[in-house]
Amino acid sequence: MGKAAGNEAYFQRCNLFWCAVITLSFGYYTWVVFWPQSVPYQSLGPLGPFTRYLVDHHHSLLHNGFWLAWLIHVGESSYAMVLCKYKGITNGWAQLCWILQTFLFGIASLSILIAYRPKRQKQT
């Protein structure tokens, strides 16, 4: 199987909406896990009392879940590295972009890479 031109450097940025949602969610989660005393629970609407309950009664679960989430992102980015090679993305910068984007945004990035179907040249 030959490679078509352009496959080697394929990269597509993930949707900005999902990047923002994931960034804000992880930021909030980090804040709640490491600085729970500074969170203004009363100003967060329905999310405030729920978060307060989790902090007061399940902080170790929140803490362990935080590290598990990052471990999952490490696994996803490792899988992205394997997928890049499998799909013929051999350009070092393109691979690095996929690995970093998948580490930061997880499945929002990985799903794009999984769906990518490289163009193959016809065998002659």
Rank of each mutant, 00 (worst) to 15 (best):
13 R>I: 12
66 F>E: 04
122 K>C: 04
44 L>Y: 05
85 K>E: 06
22 I>A: 06
81 M>K: 02
105 F>N: 07
12 Q>A: 15
85 K>I: 03
28 Y>W: 03
38 S>T: 03
115 A>P: 00
116 Y>I: 04
19 C>P: 00
102 T>Y: 14
34 F>W: 06
5 A>M: 13
63 H>I: 06
81 M>C: 10
76 E>A: 07
69 A>S: 14
115 A>L: 09
49 P>M: 04
10 Y>H: 15
87 K>P: 00
98 W>R: 01
124 T>K: 09
80 A>K: 00
111 S>Q: 15
83 L>M: 10
114 I>T: 06
58 H>K: 10
57 H>W: 03
86 Y>D: 09
120 R>A: 12
62 L>E: 10
27 G>T: 04
123 Q>F: 03
88 G>C: 03
15 N>I: 00
101 Q>Y: 03
66 F>N: 05
53 Y>I: 00
34 F>S: 01
29 Y>C: 08
122 K>S: 13
18 W>M: 08
28 Y>E: 06
15 N>D: 15
61 L>T: 11
82 V>D: 00
122 K>R: 11
76 E>Q: 05
31 W>N: 10
1 M>P: 01
18 W>K: 03
110 L>E: 05
18 W>N: 04
84 C>N: 08
9 A>F: 02
108 A>H: 07
117 R>E: 10
14 C>A: 14
115 A>Q: 11
87 K>I: 05
111 S>A: 15
62 L>P: 01
113 L>I: 11
69 A>R: 04
120 R>P: 00
91 N>P: 01
76 E>H: 01
103 F>Q: 13
38 S>H: 06
43 S>L: 13
15 N>P: 02
116 Y>T: 01
61 L>I: 14
14 C>L: 12
90 T>N: 10
22 I>K: 07
79 Y>L: 13
113 L>K: 07
30 T>L: 11
35 W>I: 02
73 H>Y: 12
49 P>V: 04
111 S>E: 09
11 F>V: 02
50 F>C: 02
105 F>A: 09
7 N>L: 12
49 P>R: 03
123 Q>M: 08
17 F>P: 00
102 T>G: 08
62 L>N: 10
62 L>V: 02
94 A>K: 07
100 L>Y: 14
21 V>G: 09
71 L>T: 14
59 H>K: 04
75 G>W: 12
20 A>C: 11
28 Y>V: 08
25 S>D: 05
61 L>N: 09
105 F>P: 00
68 L>E: 02
81 M>Y: 15
85 K>T: 10
16 L>G: 11
32 V>Y: 00
103 F>D: 12
70 W>H: 09
68 L>I: 09
78 S>I: 09
36 P>W: 14
47 L>F: 12
12 Q>L: 15
94 A>F: 05
83 L>W: 04
103 F>W: 15
50 F>I: 07
40 P>E: 10
62 L>M: 14
124 T>Q: 10
109 S>P: 10
104 L>E: 06
73 H>F: 10
80 A>L: 01
72 I>W: 12
103 F>C: 09
9 A>Y: 03
85 K>H: 11
58 H>G: 09
26 F>I: 02
37 Q>K: 05
110 L>S: 06
